[in-house]
């Protein structure tokens, strides 16, 4: 992996971040009745705060200069104040972010653990009964919207069986193992909803990537070495099939975040997804903008991680 490649990818991330911020700001600027202006004219807000807001957003300046103002403020970490939660937006988001990242991370892990072996097994026995069942289940998996799976799981595990709690609590008072147990119990369903949805598409990605690799010449070479089918598949097939899978997974990230918002809303997980919904319902514009921007940054970040993984998996990259 060459350093040049990494630097190039990093540099490419900057214009995409700028582009995303531009899109966000245009949406905001095009919106009827300046959303920030509304705040400034809201009688519930003390006049000195309103005046400060007017000055900060330069409401009478031309659009481009307001955009630059807004952008610099965002980069300085000055994301505004949430009147609903009575705290700074960046503090609020930072409080909620870890929960979201943990849920998404655990779900990704579950997706990989489930989908990788199934995808590989299906592809190495194409058109077998196993393959057809796996494929049909994958189709069902990504055709089931997360909000419906969530409700189904609640109905089954919380209402009918009464095994798992369906409301996520962040104020569990127990300590030690008991705490861990409670946390695990309340995380099972959200992680399953998100992980199985993601895993279903991953099965298809892995299967088709493996099918592409299996018929390549170097796999026959590997087979002629007499190293056994297991090593052929693991070392030569799966290892190279992972390269395109990484890219496809990165492209899926925006969808995963969408699923995370829904999941957090269903199970009332205090992450940034449920924060977004509650802020929209409460007309808390600075928080809505802030959370949307964070989601955009996360997508760029995951794309960057995917680029690095890609370069790490494929030695040819360094020479492109």
């Amino acid at each position: 992996m060459s350093r040049q490649y990494l630097i190039r990818r990093l540099l490419i991330a900057i214009p995409s971040l700028l582009g995303i911020s531009l899109v966000l700001y245009s949406v905001l600027a095009l919106a009827p009745g300046d959303p920030f202006g509304e705040l400034a004219t809201n009688p519930a807000i003390p006049p000195e705060v309103a005046a400060a807001l007017r000055a900060k957003f330069g409401l009478d300046d031309p659009v481009w200069s307001r955009y630059l103002h807004w952008l610099t403020a965002m980069f300085q970490g000055d994301w505004g104040f949430s009147f609903v939660s009575r705290m700074n937006v960046d503090t609020l988001i930072l409080q909620r972010l870890p929960t979201t990242l943990i849920v998404i991370g655990a779900a990704q892990l579950l997706a990989i653990v489930v989908a990788l072996p199934i995808g590989v097994l299906a592809a190495t026995r194409p058109y077998s009964v196993f393959d057809q069942i796996a494929n049909t289940l994958a189709f069902i998996g990504f055709s089931l919207p997360t909000f419906f799976t969530g409700l189904l799981l609640i109905l089954l595990f919380s209402i009918k069986l009464d095994w798992l709690p369906f409301v996520f609590r962040d104020d569990i008072t127990a300590t030690g193992l008991q705490w861990l147990w409670e946390e695990t119990k309340q995380s099972i369903m959200p992680v399953m909803v998100l992980g199985l949805f993601q895993g279903a598409s991953l099965v298809r990605f892995v299967r088709s990537a493996v099918l592409d690799v299996v018929r390549l010449d170097y796999v026959t070479t590997a087979r002629s070495k007499g190293i056994g089918e297991r090593k052929v598949v693991v070392r030569h097939v799966v290892r190279t099939a992972l390269i395109p899978v990484v890219t496809l997974v990165a492209l899926q990230m925006p969808i995963v975040f969408g699923g995370a918002i829904v999941t957090e809303q269903i199970f009332r997980i205090p992450g940034i997804g449920s924060l977004l919904i509650s802020s929209i319902l409460a007309n808390d514009t600075p928080v809505v903008m802030g959370v949307t921007f964070v989601f955009a940054c996360l997508v760029v970040l995951f794309n960057l991680i995917a680029d690095f993984l890609y370069a790490w998996l494929d030695p040819r990259i360094a020479f492109r």
Binding site: V23, L24, P254, F257, G258, I280, A296, L298, V299
Partner: peptide, 10 residues
């Protein structure tokens, strides 16, 4: 690379 659902909501 836009986060679709948040943007949709926005």
């Amino acid at each position: 690379s836009l986060p679709q659902l948040p943007l949709l909501l926005l």
